[in-house]
Design a protein around this nucleic acid. Sequence first.
DNA 1: GCACTAAGTATCATTTATCATACAATAGGA
DNA 2: TCCTATTGTATGATAAATGATACTTAGTGC
Lengths: 272, 272
Amino acid sequence: MADRLQEAKARQVYLVLRDRIVSGAVQFGARLPNENDLAVEHGVSRVTIRRALLELQREHLIERRRSAGTRIIYRPSPSRMTADFSGVLANIASMGRSTKVKLLSFDYVQAGGAAAEALGVGDQDLLQRAVRVRSLDGVPFSYLVTHVPERIGITYKAKDLADRPLLELLERSGVKVERATQRISACLAAPEVAAALGITTGSPLIELVRIVYDRDNRGVEYLHALYRPDRYGFEFDMVRAGHATKRSWATSPPVRKVKPNGKPRPSAYSFT
Amino acid sequence: MADRLQEAKARQVYLVLRDRIVSGAVQFGARLPNENDLAVEHGVSRVTIRRALLELQREHLIERRRSAGTRIIYRPSPSRMTADFSGVLANIASMGRSTKVKLLSFDYVQAGGAAAEALGVGDQDLLQRAVRVRSLDGVPFSYLVTHVPERIGITYKAKDLADRPLLELLERSGVKVERATQRISACLAAPEVAAALGITTGSPLIELVRIVYDRDNRGVEYLHALYRPDRYGFEFDMVRAGHATKRSWATSPPVRKVKPNGKPRPSAYSFT
DNA sequence: GCACTAAGTATCATTTATCATACAATAGGA
DNA sequence: TCCTATTGTATGATAAATGATACTTAGTGC
């Protein structure tokens, strides 16, 4: 997806409108406000709005006709994936589809920054840093940067990372994974990430930071994950618990359906 | 965090460098190449590089000294607000801080779009639509759009929405809130939202869509919430459960601390 | 102290983006 | 058929971004 639109304001408008469209905020067939109204709304001139609209048209997201206005002709792709909060994708196996991982980089770096702090290692230590992109049916949806303390990282090879979930590698290496903390946020796609995920620089991404601890409360994995929101989302159900003023939400127990006589799922490891 | 940098090329460089810094590719204390080298590397002039560096400096990610060069001084996140997955803010009461709600709009609109579909109402029905902004200590952090079926909406007044959580109003009106589904994603700030949250159009936002159902499985509230990621985030702990290949994650039971002899928290309603 | 390095400051030319404006063309409805 | 709404086209003015260049200032290390 070439980032053709160089003009800063036009590009900004383009990104906002496109986000509304692909996120489903405005649906197929809906009409956009006319160019003048958009210009007022965004505080730019009509010419600039047109630049943005032309780009959307070029990408077949909208259709424009004189006197008839501008309509959405984009239909959201049916293959939008969802994961529960633990990162387990829904229906992955049952839909007969497969995810693939591409290892973009794999090296050992001097500890520092958020990863080092989270893992509780000093400046002298080394961390294994791996960057991976996961795709479903050839379509990339997540960009993953992991840091693992060197002593653990050396127990597996780069190639393993392309084949197996990191968490599985850790446990296979004898790490007693006990708990994790997660934080979900949002950020913009930087050029490098954008290129890897096939999106435009400046697109919104879901950001997940997960720190995994072992039985001794030592950090064993620092995961920084970025997801395309049009391909991936976190979904979960909650039930109302308690009484009166003490009422609160509780998570719905995870639905782990296994066919009565069927095999259990191949793996409960999460597809980050 | 206002994205001030408008200049396209400078911004591009800025994004690349920032990504390197926050992703841990270059660590705390490390030195960046000098301005001339960066200029060559990125194929732009030194002036443009400076723009990018100035912005990074403004955000306290780097420190620049004559003859000494440019160093990374970024340290992992200072305290942002966090909520668990149910939207309950941590430490809100204990920190002696207060959230305030401003009601931006309140009206009844013809059903249509995602809200209508989620609530299972037809085109002829009316929905109550309310737009609110919640602030902590005067600083806005969330933009909330709620749709509620008319029959329920009429049981309370606009003013109530500025005082009490919507969920509480619903239950006070006799609605038997039973469960909810949530989806977390990311999107870009449109001008209206950006203005209300005090950020720049095109900034990334955390997006939450919650559909609340009553005991009879009817949709009673459709919440579309947008959060500033620099002020708010979703955080949750998980524990590893199960054995061998059947291992998976489970949510950590919510920590509901109540001082031994103290009162329970004022309210367990979520601060969305 | 001296040479060197790298950031700080200044200026002006050039290119690019944006705006304001006007008018043309087309479709749809009254 | 005429009126209106909306996109399509064109153009010149203005503002903003970028670049090229030169020079200054403050640390660094010998």
